[in-house]
């Protein structure tokens, strides 16, 4: 059991939140998150938070904390919500990565950038974008 109380293994039915901290990573009309939001930095995973059973305001609270912790602090625009099963369906994995509590990473990204883009399209297509502002 992790410090957050969550199990180490991420279950397919879990909801994941990808916080959107750039206004370039989403579109309002039509409302969608862009593939670029999911592309990880070199050698790292794509950061997400495990938010199953949390209230909307609690999810947003985690996002506000994440945005405030960046240097410099970022604006939190919303989050892209995706079921872990949709990530697994692409062949990528989700691995718990606490601290911070509930943090995880989408891992297993291939080296080839064109394939990364294809996977990011699949992830973006499977998300529901929740905007706060």
């Amino acid at each position: 059991m992790l410090a957050s109380g969550l199990r180490e293994e991420v279950a397919p039915g879990e909801l994941l939140a990808k916080f959107v901290l750039s206004d370039r990573h989403f579109s309002r009309a039509p409302q969608r998150v862009k593939a670029a939001a999911f592309i990880p930095p070199p050698g790292k995973g794509s950061s997400v938070f495990r938010v199953s059973e949390l209230l909307a305001e609690d999810v947003r609270g985690i996002g506000e904390t994440v945005a405030a912790a960046r240097q410099p602090p970022r604006t939190l625009y919303g989050h892209a919500q995706i079921e872990a099963a949709s990530v697994f369906a692409t062949g990528l994995s989700v691995v718990a990565g606490e601290p911070p509590p509930r943090h995880g990473d989408i891992l297993g990204w291939p080296e080839e950038k064109d394939l990364q883009l294809e996977l990011a399209h699949s992830l973006a297509d499977a998300t529901e974008l929740v905007l706060y502002r």
């Binding site: 750039s22 370039r24 579109s27 969608r32 862009k34 593939a35 670029a36 592309i39 883009l117 297509d125």
Partner: peptide, 25 residues
């Protein structure tokens, strides 16, 4: 549409629907 990713690449993205999209980085 124009954006950038965490790998420092610039994306140009043409989007009509979730199933009709092209991204060039």
């Amino acid at each position: 549409e124009v954006t950038a990713d965490a790998q420092g690449e610039i994306h140009l993205e043409w989007y009509a629907s979730p199933r009709r999209i092209l991204t060039i980085s």
